[in-house]
Design a protein around this nucleic acid. Sequence first.
DNA 1: GATGAATGAGGATTCATTCAT
DNA 2: GATGAATGAATCCTCATTCAT
Lengths: 211, 211, 211, 211
Amino acid sequence: MPRRTQEDSLATRKKILESAQRLFTRRGYERTSLSDIAKYAGVTRGAIYWHFENKEELLVNLMDFIDTEKFSIQLLHDAADPAEPDPLSKLKTCIKSMVDEESNKFISSSLMSMIISIMNGSAGNDIVRAKVLEFIKARHELMNKILRNCIAKGQLPANLAIATAAEHLAMFCVGFFHQSRLGYTENIKKHFEYFIDREFEEIKLLTVASL
Amino acid sequence: MPRRTQEDSLATRKKILESAQRLFTRRGYERTSLSDIAKYAGVTRGAIYWHFENKEELLVNLMDFIDTEKFSIQLLHDAADPAEPDPLSKLKTCIKSMVDEESNKFISSSLMSMIISIMNGSAGNDIVRAKVLEFIKARHELMNKILRNCIAKGQLPANLAIATAAEHLAMFCVGFFHQSRLGYTENIKKHFEYFIDREFEEIKLLTVASL
Amino acid sequence: MPRRTQEDSLATRKKILESAQRLFTRRGYERTSLSDIAKYAGVTRGAIYWHFENKEELLVNLMDFIDTEKFSIQLLHDAADPAEPDPLSKLKTCIKSMVDEESNKFISSSLMSMIISIMNGSAGNDIVRAKVLEFIKARHELMNKILRNCIAKGQLPANLAIATAAEHLAMFCVGFFHQSRLGYTENIKKHFEYFIDREFEEIKLLTVASL
Amino acid sequence: MPRRTQEDSLATRKKILESAQRLFTRRGYERTSLSDIAKYAGVTRGAIYWHFENKEELLVNLMDFIDTEKFSIQLLHDAADPAEPDPLSKLKTCIKSMVDEESNKFISSSLMSMIISIMNGSAGNDIVRAKVLEFIKARHELMNKILRNCIAKGQLPANLAIATAAEHLAMFCVGFFHQSRLGYTENIKKHFEYFIDREFEEIKLLTVASL
DNA sequence: GATGAATGAGGATTCATTCAT
DNA sequence: GATGAATGAATCCTCATTCAT
């Protein structure tokens, strides 16, 4: 029973993307076949090819999809907004959400595991790699912007070594994320807010003068 | 066709393992075919099957192989040795070596990227997952042992929350490793020793009392 | 969305046929997808299915279309016309036009390349084969009629072995056509009229008496 | 039940090539799937990929295979041999054999139908096209060589326009071949030797002086 | 009249695995 | 110990075709 209206079409597209996300995250990009995705989405492989050029394009579109859908990214954008009076809290809240998100398995960090497996994969799919790198870069720039916003609001030192601080923060998040996946952050999670606070204390030390 | 001596056999085995390591690290487990490995090692696929049951077994054996071969693990074992008077320095040295290792691309941390891709991928091959988890657990226990050794030598607080500290340290290392792979640790690398020192200062705060 | 007039419909049909001709000729029947044709014609696949049952039917219709459209066939019909005082010249002119047509790439001989690929391909699509064979037969009969007309006008011997002559002439044309496609008629083309004349001299020898 | 000895391997290879030839000739390159070939040869698709890189390579190898296997090409080489006292007869014999070969369906001319469908196909497979063009060129040069040999033996005029003559001869052969495929050489076949003789009489007229 | 969405049957290719030699 | 040959299942992808709108 084929679907016909434009809404149906969009619904199909969404179903495919969601299935792809779920399966890519669960099994990794390589180990997920289009057949798997189609089955999971309740459509045929052909339908996937109607909506996406090929497997790579599906992935690229998925990235945009997740980026748009998931709300945690919104928090980051808020934190970067010059109109935001308390960007630091917003940033901390966002980082804090990693704990819940992880337990929910499907929030923006699920994207990261995908990213990693793609970057570990390599070889052919240059379009995907480019997209991933672009994606990462965008996040990095966003982080820098947030930090600058924090400085502007007097929440971080004026002479902060921004690039270094951004790297440090990213390390913290990524480290937490990966260890969580392996189940080695039980104790950290218990006092996660404390560690976030400590992280920012560390960052505050990273002034141009001190390095 | 000369008779193969046992040495030849071992040499072949080693060649296969080294090729596997190199290629798995480079392209990931899924994207590396036994054909690739055989070609790279200058043997036939059949030879791989002589030495290893199948692809998974090759991977399992590879983990042991890397663990034995690579020297950085030795540093960790030294640091855990009760006879070692300065385990903290040994540990720091080992962590510090991540910088060079990364640039050299082929030290023990390369194993981690493999581990990650395996944990991200699969679903199926439980033997491998089990092996990986065992491997990670062993590292974790080793880390705990080292921390205890540091406490014994008075280099860390007696009431350190060891498990939490170990998790924190792991987060630091893993975070650095991943961000390095993506090329986002340039600034961190410049002052890596400083950051290692700071990391241990943080850890020192993690006493049973304080948490 | 404006109402389609009948003219629009015919225009679409024509666009499809022309696109089909161009692409079939260029890439062959098998290697041309309906998608290609639709894209080239600036319509959707669905439109093709509105005008033609399926791919085979499109081809069958295309043959009629070409047959009607192209003018060289007209020359042949003229040559077959009993009212024509000089059928031989008409025939020669038509053959001579092969040289230009080839360089123009799209005259009736382009049809032949299609025919050939169909006869070489297939096995399955009997309707097409039947159509092709019918088409070829029609040409053959036309040729016989022309030869008879030439005899009637005294331009060829009364006791000409018509069937044999027709075959010979066809061989000449087909041979030229194929060698042209491969680029091996450079020298022949330089004196093409001469060779046409010689061909007819040869044909004149094919009398019932002589064979 | 897999085969193991080298002879078996060669036998498999041969079976694949023969099946490919038969099916390519019958249905054309595009319409023949590797599955078809495998089935016909009684092997699996994998076996084909063991012996040949891919479908194109199979075709390229097939061309060499046919060229080597079939005997009519030997006649041509004999005719080109300076030691041959009567090259013209050899050449005529070879051309004459087209009649039988055609009826046998699988002689060297079957290659030509393949060539045509490939040249008509086009698009992707540049390697194949190159191979085909090389193949055709080789034949052409061989033909030129034979004609020169005929001149040397005084069987053709000293001032023969060789290139033109070669083209003319090729046209004759190719024309006959194609019309035969379509079943329109019945009458020509009855007196084929006569037409071959006439063809050579025509060629004899093609002197540098006369053109 | 024509479109957009979806299907499903293949098709080429890759690859882990097997096994006689 | 190792090779070369072969298998067969899975994968990505193409395409003719269908059909509600």
